[in-house]
């Protein structure tokens, strides 16, 4: 397991570059001052999460069952209803941003 987030004193340090990388993965644009604020706050929060290292490996037995239903056609939203909240539509379709 990679442990690159931990600095020498064991505290999780996060720099602005890492915040930008994660924001990029999550498709959230951030202002520069937000990046710096988040970097400081993430350092504190991730350091607090470090305590999870003390948690023993635990058997996770959950009684989970699949819930199935017959595959029958039911009434759903009309096309008009499904499009009603979209900012931009054309000929009954959603219009998304350009791909490239």
């Amino acid at each position: 397991m990679s442990d690159t987030a931990a600095s020498d004193d064991g505290a999780a340090a996060v720099d602005a570059e890492e915040v930008r990388h994660v924001a990029d993965l999550a498709r959230v644009r951030l202002a520069d001052d937000e990046v710096d604020e988040f970097a400081a706050q993430f350092g504190d929060i991730l350091e607090y999460f470090e305590a999870l290292d003390e948690v023993p490996e635990t058997e996770r037995e959950e009684e989970l069952v699949n819930v199935m239903r017959p595959d029958e056609i039911e009434e759903g939203l009309s096309q008009e209803e499904a499009l009603a909240n979209a900012e931009e539509t054309e000929d009954g379709f959603f219009v998304g941003p350009k791909v490239s």
Binding site: E18, V22, L25, A26, V28, L30, F42, I45
Partner: peptide
């Protein structure tokens, strides 16, 4: 934004 980013990170 904080929670989305921290969740993405985790």
């Amino acid at each position: 934004k904080r929670r989305i980013l921290l969740g993405t990170y985790a």
